[in-house]
Design a protein around this nucleic acid. Sequence first.
DNA 1: CGCCCCGTTGAAGATGATCAAATCTTGTGG
DNA 2: CCACAAGATTTGATCATCTTCAACGGGGCG
Lengths: 230, 230
Amino acid sequence: MPLSTAGSARSLAFPAIARARGKADPMARFSLAYESRTIVAGKTFLHEGDPAAMFFTITEGTVELVKLLSDGRRAILGFLFRGDIFGFSAEDSYDYNAEAVTPLILRRFPRRQLQRMYSDFPGMESQILKLVSRELAIAQDHMVLLGRKSAHERVASFLLMLFHRIGRRDGWIELPMSRADIADYLGLTTETVSRVFTVLKASGCIVSSCSRVRISDVEALAELAGGVAR
Amino acid sequence: MPLSTAGSARSLAFPAIARARGKADPMARFSLAYESRTIVAGKTFLHEGDPAAMFFTITEGTVELVKLLSDGRRAILGFLFRGDIFGFSAEDSYDYNAEAVTPLILRRFPRRQLQRMYSDFPGMESQILKLVSRELAIAQDHMVLLGRKSAHERVASFLLMLFHRIGRRDGWIELPMSRADIADYLGLTTETVSRVFTVLKASGCIVSSCSRVRISDVEALAELAGGVAR
DNA sequence: CGCCCCGTTGAAGATGATCAAATCTTGTGG
DNA sequence: CCACAAGATTTGATCATCTTCAACGGGGCG
């Protein structure tokens, strides 16, 4: 059972689950609740305000978490990839939408079993806590980006993040999301994102067609991205 | 990692601790670790990258969590008030600075006792998890603000948040932080913050002197703040 | 084949930043 | 208690970045 999360969490969640699995009975019960589900690209399959009955892991595909303002402005809180887990909430209802960026295969679990899981599998709750904490750290970095970085820095940071998350060995990144999605994630417009891509290409930092990017000069890009102080 | 908080933390952290306290022995041991400490206004008392040995609760005063970019740009992740708790981390080191906005009285606790606390006091870890989850939800709202709201909307949202957190019965809010702090929190400049205050005053939404604000027209301000869609 | 959506590019405009200076606060010492 | 200095806030003028509005081209899919 794939419980994991952004990047490094993968290495944390799996051992916990594996350990849990060994203990047979309660986990077997839990496993029965597994439900694999496919979702077409573009579908909003989880709505803000809905009772938070399930949480999910991504078997295949890319998800985006979306918040909307009443006048239609859109903010993307984050992108999620294979192995990531989401749908937890302190509240009884979701507080964002989740959309399928690509066709999805998800597993979903009833949240009401969480409490039982916690007591049945000591260590489970710690794993979840670590997961959420990491999520928060990522959110904080993103706040710095949104509050203080220029358009160029935002796009550069985004590409480096993507490369780190889903970059392939040969250096290419497949972009599952549209320019509009990138813009809503970075607090920019599609036009600005597009223009920055053009500049980065012209300056030799990246090679890119529409849905693929290769970072050809990591240092230059990292320079552009503007790191945090230490 | 960061368990800081806002709003709801007050209602969570203290009861948890209080309940724990009742249980005598292990908690007594824990209590011995309590250490009250005063800190002068303006001091950075917790540094990004330092080993995360302690976590804190605020007995009196206001704290800000700060991230710096290498060129000096500053982002404030959040403000913390009496009763808030912070300094948790998924990592072994803090990943932000904490500064005293006002003179502080803090209690600090050794983080290495957390694990013991969790096992000694069932329910404790759940409280912490809830706290962090709430923190994350707040961070997500702030990302929407930073990514998609105008200067006016940001300031209006900020004032409403402050009123909700530390507003007094008579409607006045004491602003413990400077315009520069507000700017770094909202992703603006001090000049812009100041100008927006001026406009809000002129339009009759607020009454304000330098370090005090009264919201005279909550509806108008809420309108300006621009809520989330539902 | 043709349509439609997406991405790109161009031109003009607006919001907020930057630079500069005046005014107000606050804390200190006489 | 007052004067003064240092810092914070406000205001003004100008500028830059990014947005908005508009149009064009290309690729995928019916």
